Simulated scan of single mutants.
Amino acid sequence: MSPVKSWRWKYRFMVSLSLTLVPLITGDIHVMANPTLQTTKQFVENAQRISEICTRLQPSFDESRLCVKVVATWEGLQACRELTSLGIRTLATTLFTIEQAILAAEAECVYIAPFVHELKAFFDETYHDGEPILPLCVQAQRYFEQHSYVTRVKAAGLLSVDEAVKLAGVASLTIAPNLLHTLSKSEELESQLADRSLFQEKAMLEGQAVEHTTFIDDEAKFREAFAKSAGGKGQIKTAQAIEIFSEYQIKAESMMRDPDLTRIG
Rank of each mutant, 00 (worst) to 15 (best):
C67G: 06
M32R: 11
D258M: 07
M14C: 10
G169D: 05
L134I: 11
V71M: 12
E201V: 09
G157Q: 02
K154R: 13
L183W: 05
I112A: 04
D258V: 10
T151P: 01
M204D: 05
V153A: 03
I175Y: 01
A113S: 12
L66H: 04
L17Y: 09
I236D: 14
F199E: 02
A230I: 11
D124W: 08
S229I: 08
A92R: 04
D195F: 08
I216Y: 00
R257Y: 13
D260I: 08
G87V: 06
I50A: 12
R12H: 11
F43D: 08
S246A: 15
F215L: 03
V44R: 05
A227V: 12
Q240P: 12
S85R: 06
E253I: 12
S186I: 07
R49Q: 14
E82M: 03
A79R: 03
F245R: 07
D62K: 02
L95V: 06
G130K: 13
E45Y: 08
T262C: 14
T97E: 02
Y127S: 11
R223S: 15
D195R: 10
L159V: 05
E45H: 09
F245W: 09
S2A: 12
K233T: 15
L193E: 10
K237S: 15
F222L: 04
C80F: 07
R263I: 07
T214C: 04
S18W: 00
L24N: 10
S160K: 04
Q146K: 02
I25F: 09
A171V: 10
G76Y: 08
